[in-house]
Nucleic acid binder design. Structure first.
Lengths: 172, 172
DNA sequence: AGCTTACCTTCCACTCTTGACATGTCCAGA
DNA sequence: TCTGGACATGTCAAGAGTGGAAGGTAAGCT
């Protein structure tokens, strides 16, 4: 049910259309909670039916701009304070590690090397992104920066782990 | 399609029944790729239909023991070497961070504090687990240990990040 | 005026995942 | 002997997520 609340959260600051939200998901939220167009439009309809958002303006080309309602904001707060985040994540990258034994050591190293390279690249990109942003002191900046820092630390951790793992796979 | 390959991977070492595999998923694989009973039994049937595994023995209580076939092993190897791991993960924990601005600073800190505590606990548990295992030099040990090390580093990173984030949320 | 591009939404078919329910068998201990 | 707990599989409904097709409007450019 997180998509639901992600949409509510994005509507806190300003009204937006499905199309606007779709772009937000494709860019800034893509690394945290990817969502497709069909999912977003569908969920918006459900949220409007539930009264958590309303169509506040109809624009050209059938554009519908949604605005958060008071019950919607209350629901967002309830979600944040009263429900526990779901922590069960799936990691395809890590799952494969369990089965590297069926490959040759060289193939296993190739895999880990690829992961290290990927993580290193991501880390560099995030650093560049961080440097390019002029961080303010407002809420969006504070929490946006905290989220970005998570990405930086995570990618650094993955990079270092993969490099360390490489040293553990001996030739046999 | 990872569940499919996870099952193939588990059948490499020794034949197993759906029930056996279910227990493996609930224990050792739970943190990497959780799966429910209905999923596992369903997927095993599909894998058998596809000829990637076969029923090698029928036991008491309708027990069906599955064994990996050569095409099954080939498919596992193909998956490991020729397909890229899917890296799009969803993080409920991180998603919420984006919206902490709608709460009071104190509530936001409570949230981060909870995450720090949770990560610290997980880290301690993994360390204890690591210490309790007698690691050998075989494949299972090497790659199992690499996977466990990932968990250790990940939980440490989350713990430290949450603690750092706490210092970023000022009273206003 | 005509063409292209961006905008904007809806619908559909499919797979994956969850949770619950249903059904029954074997075995060990009181 | 009986009874509870572990063993063992199957099915079903509902929700979440993916990918793509379809259909149409407005705006900008030449």
């Amino acid at each position: 049910m997180s998509l639901r609340h992600a949409l509510l959260g994005l509507l806190v600051d300003h009204p937006a259309s499905g199309y606007d939200l779709l772009k937000t998901f494709d860019t800034s939220l893509a690394n945290v909670w990817p969502a497709t167009q069909s999912q977003i439009y569908g969920e918006l309809t459900k949220l409007a039916d539930a009264g958590l958002i309303v169509v506040s303006e109809q624009g050209p080309r059938g554009r519908k701009e949604y605005t958060l309602t008071d019950p919607g904001l209350a629901e967002l707060r309830r979600w944040l304070t009263e429900t526990e985040p779901q922590r069960t994540t799936r990691s395809d990258v890590l799952l494969r590690v369990f089965f590297l034994g069926v490959l040759t050591p060289q193939q296993a190293r190739d895999y880990l090397d690829g992961q290290a390279a990927h993580a290193a690249e991501l880390h560099a990109n995030l650093k560049a992104l961080d440097d390019s942003i002029d961080w303010d002191d407002d809420d969006l900046s504070v929490y946006g920066r905290i989220a970005l820092e998570y990405g930086r630390r995570f990618s650094a951790m993955q990079r270092d782990w993969a490099r360390w793992a490489l040293t553990q796979v001996k030739n046999k």
